[in-house]
């Protein structure tokens, strides 16, 4: 039996701008994500990672190639594929409760008022924002905002969770707390997650599979790594894990390669041929 990918990008091209002055962001990208898999997409900044997420989410459509979800081409965004936006995208005029309520009302219109209240409260508690229900995003810290954004996305109960650099704007402490939280949520309530990150350790810590993108423009899938480290993973013990270290070295080596290949492209500057004077 051929296992069909749950979410798939097949030979996707995408670019911005008019044809005369076109900036190709992605070129011939092929990615397959299986159901209930936690996938990390790793790349330098400017490699079109966010574009990739909006293609998967359906916010943008590819110029050529196809985005397939359960074998069907994606034609637009859907609450089925919840996106956690990089800059939170919270609505500043709504409270914590209101922001989640907006999503819940849309996705579960059949809920009664009571049901809705307890349901929303559950997600507020899940990301430990209890007590801040009536605050507006402007009154929250960065970490709280990201947690709220996460709660909103989770409350939609998406089949696929698309995380666009969810933790990159946070301080190290908040970051590790949220990493654990995301993993907990994923483990307790299995679903497919695609996470974009520029942090290698984070990718290895969290993901089953890592896709490494080549640097843009015209970014493409460079290599695919499987992470076969036992869960639960812990950052402290991972540093001593051999699998972790070897995988990390492999990926780092690949990334260094990019730089070297870039160096090869660069024009070599002829150095003047001076010899040190010899005084005898």
């Amino acid at each position: 039996m051929i296992l069909m990918a749950y979410l798939e990008l097949s030979s996707v091209n995408f670019g911005y701008g008019p044809s005369a002055n076109r900036y190709e962001v992605l070129q011939d990208v092929n990615i397959e994500v299986n159901e209930n898999e936690f996938v990390a997409i790793l790349g330098f900044s400017g490699t079109g990672k966010s574009t990739l997420i909006s293609l998967l989410g359906g916010l943008n459509l590819p110029d050529s190639g196809q985005v397939l979800y359960k074998g069907q081409p994606v034609v637009g965004p859907s609450p089925d594929r919840g996106i956690l936006f990089q800059n939170y995208s919270l609505l500043p005029w709504l409270t914590v409760y209101g922001n989640i309520n907006l999503a819940v009302k849309q996705v579960f219109p059949e809920f009664s008022n009571e049901e809705k209240k307890t349901y929303i409260q559950k997600y507020i508690d899940m990301v430990s924002l209890s007590g801040s229900e009536k605050k507006r995003p402007a009154e929250l810290s960065g970490g709280m905002r990201q947690r709220l954004s996460l709660a909103r996305t989770l409350a939609m109960q998406p089949k696929v969770l698309l995380l666009d650099e969810p933790l990159s704007a946070l301080d190290a402490l908040t970051r590790s707390v949220l990493q654990k939280e995301i993993i907990n949520i994923w483990e307790s309530d299995k679903r497919t997650i695609v996470m974009i990150t520029n942090d290698l350790d984070e990718a290895i810590l969290m993901a089953d599979k890592i896709f490494l993108l080549s640097p843009g423009p015209k970014a493409s899938l460079y290599k695919e790594f499987n992470v076969n480290i036992e869960r639960p993973r812990d950052m402290d013990s991972l540093n001593l894990n051999e699998d972790f270290n070897s995988l990390r070295n492999q990926i780092t080596a690949c990334m260094v390669e990019f730089f070297q290949s870039e160096d090869n492209d660069s024009v070599e500057i002829e150095l003047p041929d001076y010899q040190p004077a010899v005084f005898t």
Partner: peptide
């Protein structure tokens, strides 16, 4: 645009 993207994701 971010706010509009939220609207699109939610299919408002």
């Amino acid at each position: 645009n971010d706010h509009l993207n939220v609207a699109r994701m939610l299919r408002l």
